[in-house]
């Protein structure tokens, strides 16, 4: 064979890229700075008495509420019980919605008939506010756990489906034609080319869906819940326990941030080719 090792030397040197070391800490520093600034403002506002403690309790009181719910519990359960219930609902909804939304997205992307049937349904569900369909779900599915998961899942469906549809179109024409020329059937084409090409977009959809899921959590736990972060916040709100409300909000925010980080790490680990080709 001809020796063709020479082209290896043609790869572009990476020296032109900007130093990445300086950029990451800047973002981190700014983010932490904002956080600290808001905290300082909050301490100042409550110390100066700018607002009544019923409206804005001091950070120390919120921290105390957090410790109280973590150790003694509040509204039928400890913080861990509430967190576990909410996490279970959000992630069960995510799994079920993925199982339905990804195939639906692939069908919409690959079949004109499927698109005609399913696209209007997705477009119908997409703008619905969770509080509007919550009563209907309870009438249909009762007040048990399934209806809570369903309410969250419905909010997650559209981002998953839409991101799958747009992702399935990310495969280039030549990538699709290459597989066809190798004799790929329709199913093989979807499995080997369109689905993998759609994964980066599906991951983005999952991140949006998780956001929607956390947003819907309080609505889902509005009726007949005995634990859950949304339920905890509502219970506290009914008795004007503002510090507990804020503690609950902070916990939801922390969980949402952590799940976002986990998704990003998974993406980096399993889809190393994103943005590379």
């Amino acid at each position: 064979m001809v020796d063709l090792s020479a082209p290896a030397a043609l790869s572009v040197p990476a020296a032109a890229s900007r130093p990445g070391l300086r950029r990451l800490p800047l973002g981190l520093v700014l983010g932490l700075g904002t956080f600290v600034a808001v905290l300082c403002l909050w301490v100042l506002a409550s110390a100066q008495g700018w607002a009544s403690p019923v409206f804005l309790p001091a950070p120390a009181r919120v921290w105390a509420a957090l410790v109280r719910v973590a150790t003694e519990g509040y509204a039928n359960a400890t913080l861990w019980g509430h967190m576990g219930a909410s996490l279970w609902r959000v992630f069960a909804a995510l799994v079920f919605t993925m199982l339905i939304g990804v195939p639906v997205g692939l069908i919409i992307a690959t079949s004109r008939i499927g698109r005609g049937i399913l696209d209007p349904l997705v477009e119908f569900i997409r703008p619905l506010p969770p509080l509007a369909y919550l009563p209907l779900i309870i009438i249909w599915c009762g007040i048990g756990e399934p209806s809570k998961v369903l309410v969250i899942g419905i909010a997650m469906l559209a981002p998953i489906v839409i991101s799958t549809v747009s992702g399935a179109r990310a495969a280039s024409e030549s990538q699709i034609r290459a597989a066809q020329a190798f004799g790929a059937t329709r199913v093989q084409l979807v499995r080997e080319v369109m689905l993998p090409a759609a994964l980066p977009s599906i991951f983005t959809g999952m991140r949006i869906a998780l956001g929607a899921g956390w947003t819907t959590l309080v609505a889902a736990e509005l009726v007949a819940a005995t634990r859950g972060l949304g339920y905890m916040i509502q219970s506290a709100a009914q008795f004007l326990v503002t510090d507990m409300v804020i503690a609950g909000i902070l916990v939801i925010s922390a969980l949402a941030t952590l799940s976002e980080l986990a998704l990003r790490l998974t993406e980096r680990r399993f889809l190393p080719w994103i943005g590379k080709s």
Binding site: S172, V193, L271
Partner: peptide, 8 residues
């Protein structure tokens, strides 16, 4: 022309 390889 574009190699049509699958980066995944």
């Amino acid at each position: 022309q574009d190699d049509a390889l699958y980066p995944w």
